[in-house]
Write a protein that binds this DNA or RNA. Structure first.
Lengths: 127, 127
DNA sequence: CGGTATCCGACAGGATACTG
DNA sequence: CAGTATCCTGTCGGATACCG
């Protein structure tokens, strides 16, 4: 059991993926990566149609915590908070951009495989 | 709301990630990729120290469903079932191998950023 | 504007027991 | 050997309400 734990915890890919695999993380990262300059909280919110305040905050905190996104607060009234990708965040963005391109090229095959799997007949109960 | 749904569902990267981001998926894929030839259920089970039968079965079915892993049953007694990566599965394996290498190189930075974030002091309550 | 706090339903995933 | 079936717990993520 502890072998597993250490295996899983020691696995760098999991460390990275655990943050990235959440529902909005990649979308946030992609949005920030593709914009010119930093974005404010509600700008981001509008681009990610459907995200709740809670989830956007939570996602941004997780990315900030891992050093993938920077958060800059301007102490004005009303408050202004800007988010941007860091160097590290841009690198992750590049890696997942590759994954995204592969996905676009092969998603049809995956979907077809899935369809075939779901539609395949039950093995005859050898009456 | 449906904008989100269609956005999320149409995103190929999410289609791929949703399968891959589960706890054992990458480990299974990596194990099969790094072995010489196919592996049997319990061989796989032993390599992934700590996985339960249920989760291994579930993970393998998901990979098979997406066409990333092939499952071959030999109708012998006792039953023999072999799992292997498909061409598609090997490509995904390669992509995540790159991610794994990046992770190994930068996991320290991420962990450091995380530690710094967690240890940073509360902003003084400006008494 | 940019959050925090709370409640809640859905689902991933682990433990255990049984089967062809 | 290679699974299924069942139960149970923790976490993810959405809805809603309130705050500096």
């Amino acid at each position: 059991m502890d072998t597993v734990q250490s295996y899983l915890h020691a696995c760098p890919a999991r460390t990275v993926l655990t943050t990235l695999a959440n529902k909005w993380t990649l979308l946030v990262l992609a949005s920030l990566r593709n914009s010119d300059g930093p974005l404010r909280f509600n700008e981001l919110r509008r681009r990610l149609n459907g995200v709740t305040q809670k989830m956007l905050t939570q996602t941004l905190r997780a990315l900030e915590r891992d050093g993938l996104v920077s958060r800059t607060v301007y102490p004005t009234v009303p408050p202004r908070v800007e988010y941007a990708v860091t160097t590290l965040g841009a690198e992750v963005g590049d890696l997942f951009h590759s994954l995204g391109e592969w996905s676009e090229q092969h998603v049809d095959e995956i979907l077809a495989a899935r369809k075939a799997f779901d539609e395949r007949p039950e093995p005859a109960p050898l009456a």
